[in-house]
Design a binder for these strands. Sequence first.
DNA 1: AAGCGGTACAACCGCCTCCCC
DNA 2: AGGGGAGGCGGTTGTACCGCT
Length: 299
Amino acid sequence: MGRPPCCDKAGLKKGPWTPEEDIILVSYIQQHGPGNWRAVPTNTGLLRCSKSCRLRWTNYLRPGIKRGNFTDHEEKLIIHLQALLGNRWAAIASYLPQRTDNDIKNYWNTHLKKKLKKINGSESYSREGFSSEKHQISRGQWERKLQTDIQMAKQALSDALSPEKSSGLASKPRGYASSTENIAKLLKKWMRNPPKPASSDNMGGIGTPWKENKSSNSIEMSEVFESLEVFESFDSSNSVLSQSLSPDQARLFQDESKPDVNELGQLTLLEKWLFDDGANQGKDDQLSDIKLDGNAIFF
DNA sequence: AAGCGGTACAACCGCCTCCCC
DNA sequence: AGGGGAGGCGGTTGTACCGCT
């Protein structure tokens, strides 16, 4: 007797999630908190496998997720981090707490890959990312850019990890109201744009009612951009990176096309900077306020 | 106006890692 | 210490939408 399959094919529903399912999932998580995903389908009656529930939550329903266009800064940060970490989307996503790994992965595959190919030409860009030997940006420039982005990421990360500022990512069972609002919002949209009657809907679903209506998001998004513009103006003139790096350490950031043992060191260093550098808390406090406001706008 | 191709993104699949017994 | 199971992760696919011809 093997292990009970987590995704028992028989009787399980696949395909797009319906609003009803979302509501059931969210209300369950409101009560019990995320985790113990195996118990979720059993306790909720959802005909979904535990993985599917977890994925739906983490990629879509979780509070604090920012949707829509990626900002320039986010884009650059992703590019830098991808160069550093390779296709470790979860690790990259941890530096952009409002984005999911899936989102980042999709964005990379659909936008950035092509963009970088265009910019750098096929020679200097490989499937893994940059080949830094041929990278056109000089090391100094690149370090400065990275430094700026790291400052941003640091703040975002500390916000996400800070209990009082966190938008509820921690595993506390309470505090998922924003998620409910999220659902309510989506439901409104869904009511406004009800799905076309599916002629051959044998998946049991109702098509893809959830596709974000891009035009109807314009107001929200402009607000988001407003708040991020402050982000953009963030002055990162301190040279944390160059000051805290020995030449050897700095070299770690140079050649990166394939994750290897060194890379763990890189990640550790990166995280060290993100967490340890408390010298710029003044700026960070400003940013925290901005971000809090931003969250208030999002949800 | 219709058809077609490209793009974006949600969701699935299968492997891997970590934790618990 | 070893095995089993749950959760996590990255790659890939399916499909709806959009713009161009």
